[in-house]
């Protein structure tokens, strides 16, 4: 989880965003959203700064971030891969698909590849059970997945990983 990705963040821009908001406590969520929109995630280093501005405890700010599934404290990949673990997918080998995706990307659920290409997640059901097993990359649904298709989708990725 705490994999140190040596990401430099743009402090100037961060301070600018924070300065746009008043110091009322309810500014927190909009401020977090704005930061996430620009940075793609909420850099953990930003938490104490946000807390200081709103006179909240850093742990409180972290608590709020961790409460919302849509707020992240780790950099996200350019693309989000969501593998379905609904019942239909499960009986049709969804688990194997997930395992293969993990292997190809070299990351676990909830993680992001080092080159910030992909973030891997699972979802309860994406509602295309007819196409099970399925997964979504960004907005594109890929149905009737099989090991070969996984290989093709992540071909380049897989090779990169083998060579590093």
């Amino acid at each position: 989880m705490n994999k140190e990705k040596d990401v430099q963040i743009d402090w100037t821009r961060l301070h600018e965003i924070i300065a746009e908001y008043g110091d009322e406590k309810w500014s927190l969520i909009p401020m977090l959203q704005k930061i996430q929109n620009e940075f793609g995630y909420i850099p953990p280093q930003a938490i104490p700064v946000i807390a200081d501005k709103l006179k909240l405890f850093p742990s409180e700010v972290q608590g709020v971030i961790s409460f919302y599934a849509q707020l992240y404290t780790e950099p996200r990949g350019k693309k989000t891969v969501r593998v379905c673990r609904g019942t239909a997918c499960h009986v049709r080998g969804g688990k194997t698909i997930l395992k293969l995706v993990k292997q190809h990307l070299g990351i676990d659920e909830g993680e992001t590849t080092d080159d910030l290409e992909y973030t891997l997640e699972t979802v309860a059901c994406i509602g295309v059970c007819a196409l099970a097993p399925s997964m979504v990359i960004d907005q594109h649904v890929h149905g009737r997945m099989n090991p070969k298709k996984v290989g093709q989708l992540f071909k380049q990725k897989g090779e990169q990983h083998e060579s590093t």
Partner: peptide, 24 residues
């Protein structure tokens, strides 16, 4: 948060996974 006001702890995570935790 209310008595000593150090703010070392707050919930971290949601649902079953939520636990009182420190920053990071």
């Amino acid at each position: 948060q209310e008595l000593v006001i150090e703010g070392a702890l707050d919930y971290f995570g949601r649902g079953f996974k939520a636990k009182p935790a420190t920053l990071n």
